[in-house]
Design a protein around this nucleic acid. Structure first.
Length: 640
RNA sequence: CGGGGCGUAGCGCAGCCUGGUAGCGCGCCUGCCUUGGGCGCAGGAGGUCGGAGGUUCGAAUCCUCUCGCCCCGACCA
């Protein structure tokens, strides 16, 4: 088929020199192509129209099962425990290479393309400009921000042949800041929003759950650069709204929660969470007022009556022997009978190489993220037993905060004002009773240290909080001047004063969207892709491939769909109907059209959306249009 | 990093305790048959038993070391 140039129309005019905007030109091109393909479609229907070489000038890409690499499995892979991992492997979307490292197969890659398309559209929509930065970084930049140390073991590091320290980037604050400081001089050049979609490397101590926690993954990361805090607030809000649209368009219901900022630093952050048991985070939320926070940060209202306080003045602390008792539980038992809520739990940590003591009520859980926030430490870890012995003079199990001078002591807020409590004596085998917080622990810094639990009061409205498991798919941070100060990215403001650029950083885990969508959308038979991110729109199943009318009808529909921009997966394998149905359900394309002898006798084919139970008989001549409508109304896109 | 489990054919597993011929199901190849929800029959190919060392006449099996993977606890898109 000869490809004709259309003369004298749009293309020519562009050459005449009239400035045509890129966008406009692109739209025109699409229109031209559309007309062209329409004509072909008409010809195809009118006759001839047999199978054609794939891709001839068409941008819509379809697939023939017989020629595609889609290795489906009947049985679940042994190591997969969560649905998304099992199904993505079984349906032929990915294979594991090593712990937390996956090869993405053609179907998986197509779905990822759809996701990144949505992400790009929304990022461009808020004025983001796409970059592509190096994943391979020299030590020096990370040294400048201080994160060469902070990132610790989580960063992949090695030496190049000259012996220089290198690393694989976990995120790109540093590199973008280097660009900004080198080129951005004036407030007039701001605000800027820069982003990329790029591979990130993190040497996770424990990769797990398929794509949910891996060591190499794709992240959309963006960075905003503003003159002041007000500008940052605007950039942050723009991202927040864009993220909400991205996840919604990808078929993910998300909740936005207040979050701990961790190694990123900064003043505030919001996480976007998909509620699923496959997730690893715990979030507390209030149905009544909408409060939602990661339990790393969530607060709660709890009643803490001073019920162990002795009448009158509190007697002095008194040592008593507790041989072999090293747990809260044991001290609550028989001979002692000290309820856990009367005890103080004393834990020793090391924050930036200095000892820290944290005290919470015996039945509460210390929240390390909160201790990190309270202490301002950038690296926090539990102390080793030898360190504890050295600083406290006793082993874990007999520790207490009284008289501690070797370490900063932090005390959970709920303990304020209580007395008549029991704690370790910092002497193995002994505890202290009659401990009064105001008198004996006055040297401790009060802080919110305990982990909020389900049923406790919402910090805003007091209604009972719910706690559920969630998967983090996005995280937005107000970095402020954390990086611009340490790395010297300064500009002149309106008054001619040199000020650090105010930054924000915003991340989305691309594969987590993929896996999260599967967690949310599947059934016992397989995946149920949302139209917007489905690898293809429709499965076309000729049920008896040896039957010429069946085969030819399928081929014709395949061709027509392709020309209409509907992405079809034609299962042209010589397999039994059952095999095709099973694979189609497993792969989970949103639409299915089955062509069988029976229906064909009446001039009909079978229509079935993946999530529907019923099959609908549709006249052959109507099915392409029906599919077109379904793709569009489902949030999909024709013509790529 | 602490605790637990598992490495045997492409995939899922048995065999190991009590040392002596490496097996089953699925998948794959050939033929016949069947043809609307992972058909049936017959034949066939395919394995350094994760690796190294040791004990033994003999090791998938017992011992030591090591590597890898999964799960549970401490870290993050």
């Amino acid at each position: 088929m000869p490809r004709q140039r259309r003369k004298g129309s749009d293309g020519e005019r562009g050459r005449e020199g009239r400035r045509v905007g890129r966008r406009e030109r692109h739209a025109r091109l699409l229109h031209q192509r559309h007309l062209h393909q329409r004509r072909r479609a008409v010809r195809a229907v009118q006759g001839g129209g047999g199978p054609r070489a794939q891709g001839q000038g068409l941008r819509c890409s379809c697939m023939r099962m017989s020629k595609s690499f889609v290795p489906t499995l009947k049985e679940n892979p042994a190591d997969a425990t969560v649905a998304s991992h099992q199904l993505l492997v079984r349906a032929g979307f990915m294979r594991q290479l090593a712990a937390g490292i996956y090869s993405i197969l053609p179907l998986g890659q197509r779905a990822i393309h759809e996701i990144t398309r949505v992400v790009r559209e929304e990022m461009d929509g808020i004025g983001g400009q796409e970059f592509y930065l190096p994943a391979l970084n020299p030590r020096e930049v990370w040294e400048e921000s201080g994160r060469w140390t902070v990132m610790g073991e989580n960063m992949f590091r090695f030496k190049d042949r000259k012996g220089a320290d290198m690393c694989l980037a976990m995120t790109h604050e540093e590199i973008f800041t280097v660009l900004a400081r080198a080129e951005v001089r004036s407030y007039r050049q701001l605000p800027q929003t820069w982003y990329q979609i790029q591979t990130k490397f993190r040497d996770e101590p424990r990769p797990k759950s398929g794509l949910l926690r891996v060591r190499q993954f794709t992240m959309k990361d963006s960075y905003s650069f503003d003159v002041d805090k007000g500008g940052l607030d605007k950039s942050f809000e723009a991202h927040r709204l864009a993220y909400a649209r991205i996840f919604q368009r990808c078929g993910l219901a998300t909740v936005q929660v207040e979050a701990h900022s961790g190694a990123m630093g900064g003043s505030g952050s919001i996480e976007f969470m998909v509620m699923t048991d496959a997730g690893e985070d715990l979030i507390a939320s209030c149905k009544n007022c909408g409060y939602a926070a990661n339990t790393e940060k969530a607060e709660s209202k709890v009643e803490t009556p001073n019920r162990f306080a002795p009448p009158g003045a509190s007697p002095d602390p008194e040592e008593f022997a507790t041989p072999g008792v090293v747990t809260i539980e044991a001290l609550a038992q028989k001979p002692y009978g000290v309820p856990a809520e009367q005890q103080l739990k004393t834990l020793v940590y090391v924050g930036d190489d200095k000892p820290l003591v944290a005290i919470v009520r015996g039945d509460d859980q210390l929240n390390e993220a909160k201790l990190q926030t309270a202490s301002g430490a950038s690296i926090l870890r539990p102390a080793h037993p030898e360190e504890i012995q050295k600083w406290m003079g006793a082993k874990p199990g007999s520790l207490g905060g009284l008289g501690v001078k070797t370490a900063r002591v932090f005390l959970d807020n709920r303990l304020a004002g209580l007395s008549g409590l029991v704690t370790g004596a910092n002497k193995d085998g002994f505890h202290l009773r009659n401990v009064s917080v105001p008198r004996d622990l006055a040297h401790a810094t009060p802080a919110d240290l305990r982990t909020a639990a389900a049923g406790e009061g919402c910090p805003r409205c007091g209604s009972p909080l719910e706690v559920g498991k969630a998967l983090e798919v996005g995280h937005i941070f107000k970095l402020g001047t954390r990086y611009s100060e340490s790395m010297g990215a300064r500009i002149l403001d309106e008054s001619g004063k040199e000020v650090p650029i105010v930054m924000g950083s915003y991340g989305i885990g691309i594969e987590r969207i993929l896996a999260g969508a599967v967690e949310l959308h599947h059934d016992g038979d397989g995946i149920q892709w949302p139209m917007s991110i489905a690898p293809l729109h429709l499965a076309l199943l000729p049920l008896q491939i040896q039957d010429a009318p069946v085969r030819e009808t399928a081929e014709r529909l395949y061709q027509q769909m392709r020309e209409e921009g509907i992405e079809a997966l034609l299962d042209d394998r010589d397999e039994r109907a059952g095999v095709k149905f099973k694979d189609a359900d497993l792969i989970g394309l949103p639409l299915r059209v089955a062509i069988g002898k029976k229906g064909l006798a009446e001039g009909k084919v079978e229509w079935k959306p993946r999530e529907s139970k019923e099959v609908e008989l549709v006249p052959i001549g109507e099915v392409v249009e029906k599919a077109r409508q379904a793709v569009l109304s489902g949030g999909g896109r024709l013509w790529r």
